[in-house]
Structure formats: structure tokens, C-alpha cells
Design a binder for these strands. Structure first.
Ligand SMILES: [Zn+2]
Ligand SMILES: [Zn+2]
Ligand SMILES: [Zn+2]
Ligand SMILES: [Zn+2]
Lengths: 133, 133
DNA sequence: ATTTAAATTGTTATAATATAACACTATGTA
DNA sequence: TACATAGTGTTATATTATAACAATTTAAAT
């Protein structure tokens, strides 16, 4: 069973923006990204949002919905942005992608009463990290 | 074991806005709420956001993070907005709060590798509802 | 190699979502 | 009554995100 994702060739803007997010120790917000790539010629919000949309779509980054921020995926087994889980410290805002086989298995198989079958989920846990406790 | 939540007395603005959301068949967005309550004297976005913040805090409504929209809680066992799960149809945008004892038990007990203990979570499932399939 | 379709880019303008700051008012409680 | 806490009204502004259009690049398909 070949691993067969994340083999996209990024375009110039996508690569610039991915590199920035990937280097960042914390999730980045769109306008902060914009500010940081202006020296590389990316001048308009839309250029940033378009790259972000694509990067999310192909699973290279994820959006933290409750923070409107973007984080690079470092989870090699991540199902191309279809199943994401994060832990968020409410004090220091440290955010980590959770990689738990049992969690993803449980959620992937979850079916609600209506028999609705889900193709995707996003889970955000909130609490206090070790440092902040 | 007494059930001891959601016994808050709402203020005028909070009540007006809660009633509107509670009657709505679908989640409502802040500026749509604003438009709908202007005839009742609520004129500014901040008045709406302040009421929304409070209503979320006391668990009368929840925010659907991926949609920036608000839905009334109809889940009597809901742990005061500390543990929420929703199903979202990506075609018709029908959104339902999921009430599953096994799901909430699983998530409430979930611990990640770092030993971080979570006080809250929000889960959003995406897929196609029965009608849209 | 040439044509065609699809994706990406650049740009300006604008829409949609959310908060800051300040003065004032109501409410609870010691 | 005095004090603290929460809520209100208001104006202005910050932040997040998309619409619309023209041009260019890239990838496939003849
Ligand atoms: Zn990931
Ligand atoms: Zn922390
Ligand atoms: Zn609820
Ligand atoms: Zn549907």
C-alpha cells in the first residue's frame, strides 16, 4: 500500500507561503503571512488566500478554525486534510496537531443516528499545556 | 445529582438575540442577527457580539467555527458549551448538534501523548446529509 | 508542435466578521 | 449607602475574506 499523497509540485506563491508557515513555530494568520511575504513580491491578500486554499486542499497545511490561523502538517499519516485534530492551550496558545491512531479510527468510523456518513472532520481540544498548568 | 445549568436570567438584549437564534431553523450569522433585531432597538454589531459571547459562555448557543454561525443548543445534556459536536452537510449546509453519549464519553476521556488534559473540545463532521446523497 | 482547457497570477475594490475605547446605566451585595 | 460587577449605547476601527476582470503560465490532447 503506497503512500500516495503530498506529491504536488507547488507553484511559486504556494511554495513561498508554505515555506513561511512550515518554518513558523506557531500557526500563522493570513495577514501576518502577507506582511512576511511582501518582500518576495506577494502584495495582495487574495494572493495569500489563494495559496492558502490550495495548500489546505492538498493537505500541506491545516486551518485552525477557532483561531483563523494556519499550521503546516507534520503528520505523515495525515489523510490529506480530511481528518484533523488539534490541541490548543488557552493560555499560551500553543497548538499541536494530534496524531492518534485510536482517535482517528474512532472518528472515521463514527456514525450518528441519522446514518449520515462523514467524509471529513475537524476536532479542536482546548486546555492547558504542561508549561501553563 | 442536580442538573444545574442554563438557569441564567438573560438580559434584554441577550433574550432578544437568543429568541431569534432559537426560532431559526438554521444557524445564524452575526450580521444577519443584527439585521433582524434592528427593529427591536439593537443597532450596533457590538451589541450583538456581546450578547453572543455571553450566550456561548453560558451554553445557550454554540458557535459553528467553520461557518462563523451560531445555533441554539437543544441538547439537554450538553455540558455548558464545553463539549460540542456538529454534523454539517457540505451541500445544503444543514447543521445538527450531535448528541452521542459514547462520542462524548470517548472524547472527554481522551488524553494525548503529552499528557495534556482537556477541559473543552469542539468537533465538526462534514459530509452529505440523507437528502443530498 | 499546436491547440485547447485548466490553473495560477496580478490587481483594484469591496464584503464580511469582529473588537477597541469611552461614557453611562443597571444590578447585586456587603 | 457604598462598592463592585455586569450590561448598555455609541462611534470608530481592526481583522478576515471574497468579487470581478484581465493576463499569463502550465498541462494535456490532438
Ligand atoms: Zn495533518
Ligand atoms: Zn500553554
Ligand atoms: Zn449543545
Ligand atoms: Zn444536505
Amino acid at each position: 500500500m503506497k503512500t500516495m499523497h503530498k506529491e504536488h509540485t507547488l507553484t511559486k506563491n504556494q511554495q513561498i507561503i508554505f515555506d513561511l508557515i512550515d518554518k513558523s513555530p506557531e500557526p500563522m494568520k493570513a495577514y501576518s503571512i502577507l506582511f512576511n511575504v511582501q518582500k518576495k513580491g506577494i502584495k495582495a491578500p487574495l494572493q495569500v488566500y489563494r495559496a492558502l486554499d490550495k495548500l489546505v486542499e492538498i493537505g500541506k497545511i491545516h486551518k485552525i478554525e477557532s483561531r483563523n490561523a494556519f499550521i503546516a502538517c507534520h503528520n505523515s499519516s495525515c489523510q490529506v486534510s480530511k481528518a484533523t485534530a488539534f490541541s490548543i492551550c488557552e493560555i499560551c496558545e500553543k497548538i499541536t496537531e494530534i496524531s492518534s491512531a485510536s482517535l482517528s479510527k474512532y472518528l472515521a468510523n463514527f456514525k450518528d443516528k441519522d446514518g449520515m456518513k462523514y467524509s471529513k472532520y475537524n476536532l479542536e481540544f482546548f486546555g492547558l499545556c504542561k508549561k501553563c498548568r
